[in-house]
């Protein structure tokens, strides 16, 4: 059996991912999470004297806290199966990646388990976020120094 013709058979028979439905679910889930984030930032603006700009940091932290509760009680993975990227892309999904790994590796102890494995899913996000920020900022700084653009 040659691999190429077999892959064609698989493509014909295997159930397709329901892309449109998945996108609608992702839109709904992600939208709701961001709307909750917006409400949370209003709370920080009206009750804790944060400004529109500075409210985002405590809001993000609060969302990660909510993510911990949902992850710990086994609810976030159900939201994840429904919402797909809708629950993975918001910062709550980043929190879920960190927290689920932390919970999972508790059985190997707090140093070798939790500590070592906490970022095994979310690590690339930090690594490539930092590295791309470095490259972008470096290029921009060079261009400013050369007088090509201004801050």
């Amino acid at each position: 059996m040659d691999a190429e013709s077999y892959q064609k058979t698989v493509d014909q028979i295997a159930p397709k991912r329901p892309v449109l439905l998945n996108c609608m679910k992702a839109f709904l889930t992600g939208g709701i999470i961001c709307a909750i984030g917006q409400l949370v930032s209003f709370v920080f603006m009206y009750f804790f004297s944060f400004t529109e700009r500075t409210a985002s940091n405590p809001s993000v932290a609060t969302m990660v806290f909510l993510s911990m509760v949902l992850t710990g009680f086994g609810i976030y993975k159900k939201i994840g199966q429904f919402g797909g990227a809708g629950s993975a892309v918001p910062v709550t999904g980043f929190g879920n990646a960190v927290i689920s790994a932390a919970i999972e590796h508790k059985s190997e102890g707090f140093i070798l388990g939790v500590g070592v494995n906490m970022f095994k899913l979310a690590g690339p996000v930090i690594v490539y976020g930092v590295f791309s920020a470095f490259v972008v900022a470096l290029i921009k700084t060079i261009l400013v120094k050369m007088g090509v653009i201004s801050w």
Partner: peptide, 24 residues
Amino acid sequence: GGLVCVIGQLLFDVAKLTPAHTLS
């Protein structure tokens, strides 16, 4: 926010990226 997540979902389902690749 919903639309940004839809972009992520397309990266999952159409580009067939893993969650780690998509988020990075």
